[in-house]
């Protein structure tokens, strides 16, 4: 359930707060309190996939060219991807409001 979707009257709360639509946690925006955001330098990236494997929120997905792109809907900005990248291809930059 997305947080915005959660803003409902108590009268509309589903029975026992059950979830009737399996897998709807994908709609839940976890990336709304990030302070830093990863930025990829394609020049340095060797497409090894370490960021993809080690991101705890499974934010990375390969694009058509094989580069791993972050999904900022989920990214919490933990910086793990930047720390594990063997080529220093990921830089954490400040999230401006």
């Amino acid at each position: 359930m997305g947080k915005d979707q959660a803003l409902m009257s108590w009268k509309d709360v589903p029975f026992g707060l059950y979830i009737f639509e399996p897998g709807n946690s994908a709609q839940f925006k976890t990336g709304d309190w990030r302070s830093m955001r990863p930025e990829l330098d394609k020049e340095k990236c060797v497409k090894c996939g370490s960021c993809y494997i080690l991101c705890p929120d499974m934010c990375y997905e390969a694009d058509e060219e094989g580069f791993y792109q972050v999904n900022l809907f989920y990214c919490k900005g933990c910086g793990i991807c930047a720390a594990v990248c063997p080529k220093g291809a990921i830089t954490m930059v400040l999230e401006e409001v």
């Binding site: 959660a6 409902m8 108590w10 709360v13």
Partner: peptide, 8 residues
């Protein structure tokens, strides 16, 4: 989450 716990 805090947005729904109280209503539940």
């Amino acid at each position: 989450v805090p947005e729904i716990y109280f209503e539940a």
